[in-house]
Design a protein around this nucleic acid. Structure first.
Length: 659
RNA sequence: GCCGACUUAGCUCAGUUGGCUAGAGCGCUUCACUAGUAAUGAAGAGGUCGUAGGUUCGAAUCCUAUAGUCGGCACCA
């Protein structure tokens, strides 16, 4: 019998007969390892313990409790759920099943009606029963023909089988029911004790909206009960962080169906946060050499025909307004063409480059109804937009400058949880993009080169580019775990071409500039939503809609002192209020804390006598007596430092330091 | 847009198999209490039960349509 050579993670090598399984190999090392083993990795590829091997390689035994084992456990849960679903409904068809770091899911399709969330408990107890009766998972290999017979006309399963490039189709048999292997599972489901079926939702077969929609059953599973509890707790806490909930509680914004879906109203407190962000970013951009403009939210449709937006995004644009004289006016979905008009208004010299045009530009997009969500996805939004027009040899330097600006801003807002994503066009679907292979290759290489030069980590994503060029996206997560783009820097060789932009070079001849589109703090809507969730509504003092709440012990006796203080604070541009409702102090303090106001100060007889204030910071249980001047300088310092105590060089402020 | 669920007072939610003038807590108003660091007590106002049809002696409750919201999917310049 042929011998196979396996190399272990510690570098040791050992030979086994062909047909050996990963389980045998684990046993040969130690009984305890075999006991904990749930799967293995052969040359980096996940395999199950039961598969007879005909090739050697680097082998790594995955044991229960490791990060990777969680996926094995969940894949087992998914195969088991599929088994339970099939046992319950004989007419059910099964699409994709999958497991990942968030949990697992099984796609189902029933002829008469869909599986509903009311049935989850029943399915879960069925799963538990199966484990109790017989937790063993058997491997069964079927020929393609037999496999197709086994799935009995299920078109989804048939397609999955057809895609497998082998006549040896693996099924996992659980409780006598065969399910097509769509991942790697452990030989036994005995570890699957702590799982929960979470929800049911629609999902397109193969992820294509032209395909039928299946019902996706979501669940999660863990090795230990407390890990499951922890996860469920996190899911609950995420809901408390939801900007829609906090936005309502703190009276920041609302959306009224009478006015229209996706058209948010900013209440005074929300407007204050927004105004603070807008002032901040505008000042920051001025310091970085940007010139701000105002341009119309309406434009002749031809502008967007020329830019290509109409061709590419017509479905997501508001329909044009046809005027009496047949002029077609369009609500702008993007600001780039407007800034191009600014550029083109004069003949530009190379001496003006890079020319940085910025605007808090209001745009309208007819987002699909199902995509709308609080402030995160809306139909009217104001983008922190900026376009830099550069000579080709300035691209890299300008790219770096924009990254520096971004890093400064992230530092001030204390944003640390993000990843860089280089977004390329989809090589399989080049029709979707501006058609110029040379341009794409050049731009993509240039972006990657810039990131590599800066020594920054990034992931690469095909199919995420804009239609006019590749981009660097900064990806963050919302409270509910959905990924979203916060900042973006995009290279564009196309629009300068389409609008025939040029500048006069040193040589007196005309040259084509390159556009760099960039957004630092996203749209005001999305960024505010992001900050609400990040700070859980407890904004740092500089952003807080109300910074100081003054509470007189007795409004009659101490109200005047409180109002005098309030005037003093407001003269210093502090957002201060006196609570004059005349309620008892404890009540007013509780109210100020509930509203997450950074500073609550109480004034009564003692404070008037000593010319002091009694200060209680948000979230703290004790109060401090301070002189009024000390209090003011503390608050001003708090604001000036963006409420950050670690304001030294320990955190990088520029890409130079990232290196 | 698609699949499913949901929509009752300003907010958060009860409301049994269709059956009297639709309830609670918070908030709001009034009165009393004149207060020392997370809710003083009492009284009161407030809802054509998302909207439009329908079934029924009778609809918050059942049916249809429609709007919006939520969980996902698809989309996201």
């Amino acid at each position: 019998m042929a011998k196979l050579s396996f190399e272990f993670p510690d570098g040791n090598k050992k030979e086994f007969d062909s047909g050996v399984t990963a389980e045998d190999i684990a046993k040969s090392i130690s009984v305890s390892l075999a006991k904990k083993a749930v799967a293995a990795k052969l040359d980096g590829k996940m395999i199950d313990l039961m598969q007879p091997l005909d090739q050697g390689g680097k082998i790594d035994i995955i044991t229960s409790g490791s990060d990777e084992s969680l996926q094995i456990l969940r894949q087992g849960a998914a195969q088991l759920l599929e088994t339970a679903v099939k046992e319950k409904y004989h007419d059910i068809r099964i699409g994709e099943i999958s497991a990942d770091k968030d949990g697992f899911f099984v796609d189902t399709d029933k002829e008469d009606r869909q599986v509903s969330s009311d049935e989850l408990e029943e399915l879960a107890s069925k799963m538990k029963k199966i484990i109790k009766n017989n937790a063993t998972v058997n491997r069964v290999y079927l020929s393609k023909d037999d496999a197709l017979k086994e799935v009995d006309g299920d078109p989804y399963q048939a397609k999955l089988i057809a895609k497998i490039d082998s006549d040896n189709i693996l099924f996992y048999s659980i409780d006598g029911v065969k399910t097509l292997a769509q991942g790697v599972v452990a030989p036994s489901l005995k570890d699957l004790k702590h799982f929960k079926l979470l929800s049911v939702a629609g999902a397109y077969w193969e992820g294509k909206s032209s395909n039928p929609m299946l019902q996706r059953i979501y669940g999660t599973a863990f090795f230990k009960a407390d890990a499951l509890d922890e996860d469920l707790k996190h899911r609950k806490e995420a809901k408390e962080r939801d900007h829609r909930v906090i936005g309502n509680n703190l009276d920041l914004f609302f959306v009224d169906p009478k006015v229209g879906a996706g058209l948010p109203y900013w209440m005074p407190k929300g407007a204050t946060i927004r105004r603070t962000i807008e002032r901040y970013i505008t000042d920051k951009e001025i310091a970085h050499g940007y010139q701000h403009v105002y341009t119309p939210v309406l434009a002749n449709l031809d502008l967007y025909k020329q830019s290509g937006h109409w061709d590419h995004y017509r479905d997501d644009m508001f329909p044009p307004m046809k005027m009496d004289d047949d002029e077609m006016l369009e609500l702008r979905p993007m600001n780039c063409p407007s800034h191009i008009q600014i550029y083109n208004h004069h003949i530009r010299s190379y001496k003006e480059l890079p020319l940085r045009i910025a605007e808090l530009g209001m745009m309208h997009r007819y987002e699909k109804s199902g995509a709308l969500s609080g402030l995160q996805r809306v139909r009217e939004m104001t983008l922190n937009d900026g376009h830099t027009f550069v000579a080709p040899d300035q691209i890299q330097e300008e790219f770096k400058k924009i990254l520096n600006l971004m890093m400064e801003v992230y530092h001030d807002f204390d944003i640390n949880n993000y990843t860089f994503r280089l977004s390329y066009r989809d090589p399989k679907n080049t029709k979707k993009y501006f058609d110029d292979d040379a341009m794409w290759n050049k731009a993509q290489t240039m972006l990657k080169g810039a990131m590599d030069d800066l020594g920054l980590d990034y992931v690469e994503a095909e199919g995420e580019a804009a239609f006019y060029g590749p981009k660097l996206d900064v990806q963050t997560k919302t409270a509910l775990g959905n990924e979203e783009t916060l900042s973006t820097i995009q290279l564009d060789f196309m629009l300068p071409e389409r609008f025939d932009l040029h500048y006069v070079g040193e040589d007196g001849k005309e040259h084509r500039p390159v556009m760099i589109h960039r957004g630092i703090v996203s749209t005001m809507e999305r960024f505010t939503a992001y900050l609400i969730e990040m700070y859980k509504g407890a904004f740092p003092t500089w952003l807080a809609p109300d910074q100081i709440q003054i509470i007189p012990v007795s409004d009659d006796k101490h109200g005047d002192y409180a109002r005098k203080l309030n005037e003093k604070f407001r003269a210093l541009k502090l957002r201060s209020n006196v609570d004059e409702r005349g309620e008892k102090m404890g009540y007013l303090i509780r109210d100020a804390q509930t509203k997450k106001i950074p500073y609550t100060i109480v004034v009564g007889d003692d404070e008037i006598k000593n010319n002091t204030v009694s200060v209680r910071k948000y979230g703290e249980d004790n109060s401090r007596d301070m002189s009024i001047d000390d209090f003011i300088s503390e608050v001003l310092h708090d604001i000036a430092t963006y409420s950050r105590n670690d304001d030294d060089d320990s955190k990088s402020k520029s890409v130079d330091k990232v290196k």
